[in-house]
């Protein structure tokens, strides 16, 4: 096990709103760790607490109780932000600046200057495929996708150890999503730990080493994609050349909508069906190992929380 880039233990956060400062618990006993060098996906429905957790990590929000460490330093300490690059959800910037001027501004704030600053800007723009004419136009003319690329570019300028991205793929077209995915993977190959939230679960499944699922302020699942999906049970879909009478079906095997296709609830049911087919001379055309997707599991968890 490597060292931890992010450590969160028993984190609680309450928002107070309205004239009477009515409390609302946004994070309830949240705990998880992110090892250095991982790509860590943070998923959940809207309002579940993803952005709140991210803002606690970046020092933008205070928290009630618990322990939060970023590279071993509390986010309440300004020093913790020396290791972090952060791009907020739907980033907004000073729209009277051009994209390049904005990157220069943020670059200077993280201690870059002169030729080093220019070369870093060039590197970040190439990484995000943003080295285009529009980068020298004022930000007020930018589309959401352009803004998102500039947002991530400013986050990587200092070559941080930890890159925190809040919905980095929202507002991007398929090409943009692919570019951001590739940028994340390239940075990760260079040793950068990536912690990001996303609604696009197919992207999360394709690039994350581990995932935490948050619903209603609580972590409901945490682990690698395999660990999470296998913990929810695995199904087998078997297609035979001829039909089987429903009364003859072994225990744990059920018909699907297709007349010659059957679903086995577990390994034992699969074995019983295969034995049945062999002993009755029924040819098996295809067998698929199916496990629930992150989307299926998230939907189930949301339904459970609502209930």
């Amino acid at each position: 096990m490597g060292d931890f880039m992010i450590q969160i233990e028993h984190l609680h956060k309450t928002y107070r709103s309205g004239f009477l400062m009515k409390p609302k618990l946004a994070l309830k006993d949240v705990s998880f760790n992110v090892e250095s060098g991982q790509v860590y996906g943070f998923i959940g429905p809207n309002g579940a607490g993803k952005s709140t957790t991210i803002k606690v990590l970046t020092g933008l929000l205070n928290f009630d109780s618990g322990k939060v460490l970023v590279n071993g330093i509390s986010p309440r300490d300004v020093k913790s932000r020396r290791f972090i690059g952060y791009s907020p959800e739907q980033p907004y910037f000073y729209d009277y600046l051009t994209g390049r001027e904005l990157l220069k501004f943020y670059g200077r704030l993280v201690g870059l200057d002169g030729e080093l600053l220019n070369s870093r800007i060039q590197w970040a723009l190439e990484l995000l495929h943003a080295d285009k004419d529009w980068i020298d136009r004022r930000l007020r003319s930018y589309s959401k996708g352009m803004m998102q690329r500039v947002g991530i570019a400013q986050a990587v300028l200092a070559k941080p150890k930890l890159l925190i991205l809040d919905e980095p793929m929202s507002g991007l077209d398929p090409m943009g999503r692919r570019d951001v995915r590739e940028a994340i993977q390239e940075l990760n190959r260079d040793g950068v730990t990536i912690f990001y939230s996303s609604h696009l679960l197919s992207d999360v499944e394709s690039i994350s080493h581990r995932v935490a699922m948050i619903v209603d302020g609580k972590i409901v699942r945490e682990g690698s994609i395999d660990e999470i999906t296998e913990s929810c049970g695995v199904e087998y879909h078997v297609r035979t050349r001829t039909a089987i009478l429903q009364n003859d079906l072994p225990e744990g095997v059920a018909p699907t909508g297709h007349p010659q296709e059957w679903v086995c609830a577990d390994d034992a049911a699969r074995d019983r069906l295969l034995t049945f087919c062999l002993s009755n001379g029924i040819a098996v055309e295809k067998m698929e190992h199916k496990r629930p997707s992150l989307e299926d599991i998230l939907t189930e968890e949301i339904a459970r929380a609502d209930a």
């Binding site: 803002k55 970046t58 020092g59 933008l60 300004v78 020093k79 932000r81 020396r82 972090i84 952060y86 791009s87 907020p88 980033p91 907004y92 910037f93 000073y94 943020y106 704030l109 993280v110 947002g151 400013q154």
Partner: peptide, 14 residues
């Protein structure tokens, strides 16, 4: 209001 403060204060600036 424009949330530019989020990016700014996530830098190592007090």
């Amino acid at each position: 209001q424009r949330r530019t403060v989020l990016t700014l204060l996530s830098k190592p600036i007090s």
